[in-house]
Amino acid sequence: MEQVLNVVFSTAFLAAVLRVSTPLILPALGGLISELGGVINIALEGIMLIAACAGVLVSVWTRSAGLGLLAGLALGTLTSLVLAFFHLNLKADLILAAIALNLLASGGTIFVVYLVTGDKSSTSRLVSGQMPFLRDIIPTIADLPTIGPILNQNILTYAAFVLTAAVAFFLYRTRPGVHLRAVGENPEAARSVGIDVRRMQYLALILSGALAALGGVYLSMGYVKFFARDMTGGRGFIALAAIYLGARHPLGVLVAALVFGAAEALAIQLGNLRVPTQLVQIIPYAATIIALVLYAIAQRQRVAARQRKFRQAA
């Protein structure tokens, strides 16, 4: 137990939490926008995978991490555009179409990687670009005592925090953001006051795709420097859970993603302490289910309280 506490209260652990939370925060923010727009994006997982793969391959090909990032972002966003087109124009079921895209991402990325490298498991033989860490921009930062390792994060980790604030601003302080939430709340009412529902839902899905794509690029070009088969490992789905645990608010979602990140970081650290890794790996998934139940119960009580108030008022 003491060993565990030592682990949890170390700076290395804090740094690890930030590192592993990033690919949860970004897609969770994306998922939040889609959820508030009433078109929850289940394809986050696949979008991340496609962006991760495209980022690595393009950065290898062009020898530029920046172009890799752009390619990942572009392809991830394109994938969500396909989802939006199938759902909003071709009336496809949102969830089934997203499942199809996740399948496409899982098979398609390996198909392409196999063509390029002749290896089906990963691109580790290629030298991928990597997004810069803070150390690469401000070289002295890593030498700072204690906080150095914590501050020396990938710029996409910093982007995740900045984007949380940006998403909150967008959703609550801008016209399209408010319209987007109105559409998610009640599309008929939104339509009746002249809001273009389909356009807002396109926007919601595209933004969610772009954010998930950033998360994917971080995984393959920040967290590590290669693409591996199904490397997202369910993060796109844990991100969905973070939306509900975070009470559908950007700040809450950020905290929820950090909690899941902490659970994952703990699993990694405990794995070093000869605890069976399989059991430790269960922690984040079990935490997700518990969070889902707690959120659902809280939500029900909120509704019940509102109903009581309504009856008293009447």
């Binding site: 199938f86 071709l90 079921d93 089934l96 499942i99 199809a100 098979g107 398609g108 390996i110 198909f111």
Partner: peptide
């Protein structure tokens, strides 16, 4: 994985 890709396209088109 070609088959998985074909599978995904089939599912996607059927949902339309």
């Amino acid at each position: 994985e070609l088959v998985q890709v074909i599978q995904a396209v089939i599912v996607l088109l059927i949902t339309a």
